[in-house]
Design a protein around this nucleic acid. Sequence first.
DNA 1: CTCACGTCTGTTAGCGCTAACAACACGCGC
DNA 2: GCGCGTGTTGTTAGCGCTAACAGACGTGAG
Lengths: 335, 335
Amino acid sequence: MAVHGPAMTDVARLAGVSHQTVSRVLNGHPNVREQTRLRVQAAIAELGYRPNGAARALVTGRSQVIGVVAQNTTLYGPASLLAALEQTAAEQGFAVSVGSVRNLDHRSISDAVERHLAHRVAGIVVIAPVESAGEALERLPKGVPLVTVDGDPRRPVPLVTVDQVAGAREATLHLLEAGHRTVWHVSGPSDWFDSAGRIEGWREALAMAGADEPPLMPADWSAASGYRCGQMLARMPEVTAIFTANDHLALGVLRALHEFGKRVPDDISLVGFDDVPEAAYFIPPLTTVRPDFDAVARASLNLLLAQIETGGGGALRQTIAPTLVARDSVGPPRR
Amino acid sequence: MAVHGPAMTDVARLAGVSHQTVSRVLNGHPNVREQTRLRVQAAIAELGYRPNGAARALVTGRSQVIGVVAQNTTLYGPASLLAALEQTAAEQGFAVSVGSVRNLDHRSISDAVERHLAHRVAGIVVIAPVESAGEALERLPKGVPLVTVDGDPRRPVPLVTVDQVAGAREATLHLLEAGHRTVWHVSGPSDWFDSAGRIEGWREALAMAGADEPPLMPADWSAASGYRCGQMLARMPEVTAIFTANDHLALGVLRALHEFGKRVPDDISLVGFDDVPEAAYFIPPLTTVRPDFDAVARASLNLLLAQIETGGGGALRQTIAPTLVARDSVGPPRR
DNA sequence: CTCACGTCTGTTAGCGCTAACAACACGCGC
DNA sequence: GCGCGTGTTGTTAGCGCTAACAGACGTGAG
C-alpha cells in the first residue's frame, strides 16, 4: 500500500531471503552472514522500509513508546521536564506519549495510566507532584516499569526529584547571609510536594541561623497570587527579605512592591525558584534557584530503562541538587 | 498475564459469546441484541478488560494516536498549543505522541514524521513555523492525514494559523491611535512565519495611518535579545512607541528602558504579543495580543479528524483571530 | 568415513484484533 | 408449503512481526 509502505516480506523478497532474516538483521541478531546483512540493509534502504511498530508491539507485548502523565504542561517546570524527557527518550529510540490530566486525583491518574497501558507502552513516567497522586500509583498493576518525578518521597515507588529542600535552604541562607534577620516565604499550593520541600528547606535554614520564623504566606504558582501576597508584604515594615516558591510568584511580588514604592533590593531582597529564562530580565534581575531539568529527565529515563530491561524494579530514588543563581535582587537590609 | 490483562477471548468466554461479538460491542456495531450487549459489558467490567491498541492498530492500519511534531515545546506558544492539542485529542479518544526536533530543517522534520508513521499514527500535526519545514512536508507520503499549525500560508497543505497579521495590525493601530507618530517593531527570528506575519501587520498599520516606517529591529524570541534591542531604543529620543513580537521581548525591552530611566507608558508605550500569564504582572502590566491557542488546537484537530474519517484531505485553511488585551503599558506620547 | 556440533537460514505458529463471509432463526408474502 | 429478507451470532483469515523450532551446510574429532 502507498501509505503504509513496504512490509518485511517485501524487503525479504527483494533481498532474496526470508522475512525472518530481515527481522534478525533489524534486531541485531548475531548469526547472520555479513554479506546477507548487507544485502538486507540495501533492500531496506532501497524500499525505504520502516518496521511496523504496532506489529512489533503486538508480538513483544510492548512498544517503543514511553508514556508520560503530567498535569499542567503549560507551567515552566513540567514543560521543561517534558521536553527534556522527550529529547532523552528520542536518543534511546523511544517515542513519548503525553497524557495530561486536569486534576491529579486518583481517578484521573489511573485513567491516564491505563490509557497508556492500553497502547502497551514500555514504561510510564508520572510527574506527580501532589499527595493524591501517590495513592493511585500504588494500586497500579505490578510489573509495569514506572518512575515518578517530584512525587511522594515516602512511597515505595522509584522516584527522581529535584532536591527542593536543599534549594530552598540555599536560597534562604543566601538571604540570611546578606544580613537579613529573617526571611518571609511565599509558598506554592500546599498539596504539592515541591511546595512542601521548599517550605521545609526554608524552615531548616531559619532554624540553622536561629532566626524567627514568620508566618507562611500560601499561594499557588501564579504571578497573580504572588501579587496578592506582595501587596500584604509591602505593607509590613519589618519585611526585608522574601523567598518565593517560584519565579512567577516573585514577579507578582516584585510588581506589588514596586507599586508600594518599595525598591528591590534596596528596601527588600527577593529570591525565586526555577530560573525561568526571563528571570534575568525582571526588574531587577532575579536571584533564583535553578533545578536541572535535563538531569532529572536523564535520571528518570535511566531508571525506567533499567526496569524495562531487567523487568524487575527496585524502589530506587535519585535526587538532583539545584544551584543558586545570584543576580541583583538580593542586597543587605536597610538600616 | 498479570501485566497485560485479559484479552478479548477471555471476555468472550465469560460472557458466553464469540470474541467477535465482543468486538462488535466495543465498536458500537448496530446488530447486537441488547441483552447480549449488556452481558458483554458486564464481563468487560468484571475483568477490567482494556482493548489492546497495538493489535487494533495492526489490523486497521492506524492507532488511536496523533503525532505532533514541534520544535521547542518549552516556549510558551508551542507549549500551550501542545497542551491544548492533547486536551482536545483526549476528549476524542486519541492519545498524543510528541516528536520534538532540535532544528526545523528538512531532515529533522522528515525523521520525526517517519518515526510517527512507523507507529501507525492516525494523523500528524506539525507545528512548523519556519520556512525550511515546508519543503519537508510536501515530500511526505500522500494519504497521511496532516495538518500544519503556523506553517507556510503559500503551501498546499491544510493549515491552521493564528492571524498574525491582524494581531500585529491591531497592536500597531492601538499605539497609533494613542497619538504616537509612528511605532517601532522588535521582531522575532526572520525565518519564522509568525515573525513575518507580525512584521507585515505592523507595516500595514503604519501604511494605513500614513506613518513613517522606522527601521526594523530583528531579534529572536528571548528576553535577552529584547534587552539588547531595548538598550538601543532607549538611546533614541524620537522613539515613543514600541511593538515587540512577543511578551518576553517586551520584558527585555522594559528592563532596558527602566535602566535608562525611561518610564512606561509615560515616556514610551509598549505592546507585546502572546499574553503570557505573567504579562499582567510586568511593570507596568503589559498591553498585548492574545492568540486563542485552544481555538487553534480545536480547529487543527477537527481538520485532522475530518481527514482521518473521509480519508481524503483537501488543502483547507483556517485562521484564528487574536484579541488585543489592553493594560497599562500604552499611553499618549509625551509632548 | 561418520557423527556431533556450530553457523546460518527457512518454516511455522501465534500475538489480539477486525473484516468478510457463513450460518441460523424468524417472520413475511405468496 | 416455499423462498426471501432481516437480525443476530459464529467462523475464518490475516494484519506484520518475533520466537521457537527445523533444516542445510561445513568443520573437526574419533
